[in-house]
């Protein structure tokens, strides 16, 4: 991975962030903080790591992606647009009645969405099912699941973690968007996740740390996950909620607040 490649992906991530700001401010609804914290992870997945073909969203040998933290749908839609799954002008229909870009991802409405999500805690089970299915089919496709950090408080995440660890699903990679904030408070003030890496290790997972806003760090983490055998991998990606907009970064209220008025131009200016 050369410096130019990294630079290119950084530019892509910036474009996605700009689209997120434009889309959410135009829709006057959606989740800003979590879409911006997951942007670099989505960029590396869709532009480097995953074996996909935007012209064939239903290709049966493609790698699968599950956005378990479905509220970051806008981030996913903007990444799909950038990758060429559908036209950018569709983003203006985000959150509209009868639109194909729902508030939470709908696999039947949006090309490139592999699973409908929104109710937290369920995506890792679905990913484990896809990974188990790949093994039964003797296919080599891999499965990636992005979870929010607050979401990890859901008990079903640990049911799925136990299942994947027990069954040695090394074709499954979970990525935790660890931005340290949830809807109403800091994660550590709600229910602390730490020691998070130890918890996953205890569930028989290969644990990889990453800077969730460094393309290089994320690429290395995904490479480690790809080379790992005999255990599912989890990338615990340290991120910043609202990353890229100075006045939204690390602010609890930006979980579900969207840029408005002068904030829109200011945010886009910072993302030039």
């Amino acid at each position: 991975m050369g410096k130019d490649d990294i630079k290119k992906l950084e530019e892509t991530a910036k474009k996605i962030r700009r689209s997120i700001v434009e889309t959410l401010s135009s829709a006057k609804a959606g989740h800003t903080g979590g879409s911006l914290s997951v942007t670099d992870i989505l960029t590396v997945l869709y532009f480097k790591e995953m074996k996909i073909d935007p012209s064939r969203p239903d290709w049966e040998d493609r790698d699968r992606f599950v956005l378990s933290k479905g509220h970051a749908s806008c981030g996913l839609y903007c990444a799909l647009v950038e990758r060429g799954y559908f036209a950018k002008d569709l983003l203006s229909t985000f959150d509209r009645t009868d639109g194909c870009l729902q508030g939470h991802p709908d696999m039947h409405k949006t090309p490139g969405v592999d699973m409908s999500t929104g109710s937290l805690g369920q995506g890792l089970s679905v990913g484990a099912g896809m990974a188990a299915g790949a093994r039964l089919l003797k296919k080599s496709f891999r499965v990636f699941v992005v979870l929010g950090d607050g979401e990890v408080q859901e008990g079903q995440v640990w049911e799925a973690a136990m299942y994947a660890g027990h069954n040695k699903l090394d074709n499954l990679t979970a990525i935790i968007d660890y931005n340290k904030l949830q809807l109403a408070s800091r994660v550590q003030d709600a229910i602390d996740l730490e020691p998070l890496a130890d918890k996953f290790r205890a569930f028989k997972w290969n644990v990889i740390g990453a800077d969730g806003h460094s393309i290089e760090s994320l690429c290395k983490a995904f490479e480690k996950a790809r080379k790992n055998k005999g255990r599912p991998s989890v990338i615990i990606a340290d991120t910043v909620k609202g990353k890229g907009i100075s006045f939204a970064e690390n602010k609890v209220e930006w979980h579900v607040r969207v840029p408005k008025g002068d904030e829109i131009a200011k945010a886009l200016d910072e993302l030039k």
């Binding site: 049966e60 699968r64 696999m107 592999d114 699973m115 369920q122 995506g123 890792l124 089970s125 679905v126 990913g127 484990a128 099912g129 896809m130 990974a131 188990a132 299915g133 790949a134 039964l136 089919l137 499965v143 008990g155 079903q156 049911e159 799925a160 136990m162 299942y163």
Partner: peptide, 16 residues
């Protein structure tokens, strides 16, 4: 782990 069982079923169904 019944909740996990339904999620895994969905994942299996999603891949055919």
């Amino acid at each position: 782990a019944e909740a996990n069982m339904i999620g895994i079923s969905a994942g299996l169904a999603a891949v055919g």
